[in-house]
Design a protein around this nucleic acid. Structure first.
Lengths: 203, 203
DNA sequence: GTATATTTTGAACATCGTTCAATGCGATAT
DNA sequence: ATATCGCATTGAACGATGTTCAAAATATAC
């Protein structure tokens, strides 16, 4: 027999997946409690037995998105054993980030655009998860500038990630004129190579 | 005598200013039609004589924000007559952008996070206005790399702006752990100098 | 098998943006 | 000055929305 707790867990999973499909298809504004209830076959109120509120649901969808992003970047990042390979690895990660954002535009946007309802704050586990994004840069960066202090490298990795993120975010923004895919890829690669070159030149 | 059209224009201005205050104070989610009506002393329905819908109101607030941003960046950008000054000018503009974002956090966010209601698209005048942001970079950039083709410089300017924007956006994001002001300024300056150095080195 | 605890339900509530028939008002003609 | 007409203004009503909670249904314990 399936205990109620187990079924609730199963239904919560269904709920999150339904929410993910809704966001991917119609954006964050297309996420409606009543539609989700109908899709997973439960009453409207039952949603609040699975999840505290819509904010938590969005955060859980974001958690899944982050996990997929993490896997994508890991797969794209080759092993680095020479200093010369570090630049190539960073380029590969940056391009993979851009591709992921393109292919998961609505879900990726939610990671940054979603705001908690007034009075609520982002829970610690969600903050911690977001930090994992910087991780993929620190490996190659350690090979590229091994002499720098670790704290400096952490900040540098965050900055490098943020810079690429900005180029992707504005490049995919239709409020500005969107940049064609080819051009965007070239700009990203150029930016990363520029930064890597600047970092390895003796000062 | 004040004709009705003139009064409507005056009231529309009041409406936009009230909306600006509301967003600056409580964020985009704190923008309520009923509160605005009360604040400017008109009925709820009258708002729709001044503005087509809330989206237009947000766009008009964004227009004002962009104008102030534009003025801020212009004031921060020194005249450039030597190649060496180009880097300093770009650093100054980038730091001014960061300061503006900090001081106008909610209004600045709306420029990028706002999405039109389903079925509507951003009007052309709003798209054109957003493009003005790249302008401040092209001047110094022309001095820094005068031999490049203009189209390349345009793309490069957009990329450089986007990179700095990304560092500011993620640096001010509380969903990640916000970077202290000092550190953020240093990272931005470092990034711009890195890029400028990479651009001026012979290849 | 009955009693108790727990879960599920969906109607009701509070807020939104938006609409529109009714009202008010200013301009114009007589 | 008065009547008439056109347009602006009004705010109650509408349709969505997320959220709540007393009641009903169901599971669990004895």
């Amino acid at each position: 027999m399936t205990t109620t707790a187990a079924r609730r867990d199963r239904q919560r999973e269904q709920l999150i997946e339904a929410a993910e499909r809704a966001i991917a298809g119609k954006g964050l504004a297309g996420l409606k409690a009543r539609e989700l209830a109908q899709e997973i076959g439960c009453s409207l109120g039952a949603i609040y037995n699975l999840v505290a509120d819509m904010d938590e649901l969005v955060l859980r969808v974001g958690s899944r998105t982050l996990a997929r992003l993490d896997a994508t970047l890991s797969a794209a990042s080759p092993a680095v054993s020479f200093r010369e390979q570090a630049t190539e690895a960073l380029v590969a990660v940056a391009l993979a980030y851009c591709t992921f954002a393109r292919d998961n535009l609505q879900l990726w946007r939610v990671l940054f655009e979603h705001r908690m309802a007034e009075g609520s704050t982002v829970p610690d586990w969600a903050v911690a998860e977001q930090m994992t994004m910087f991780r993929h840069i620190l490996g190659p960066l350690g090979m590229l500038v091994p002499d720098r202090r670790e704290e400096d490298r952490n900040l540098l990795g965050r900055t490098l990630f943020s810079a690429v993120h900005g180029v992707v975010a504005i490049g995919l923004e239709e409020k500005l004129i969107a940049v064609p895919r080819r051009e965007l890829d070239r700009q990203i690669e150029g930016l990363v190579r520029l930064a890597c070159r600047g970092l390895t030149i003796r000062d």
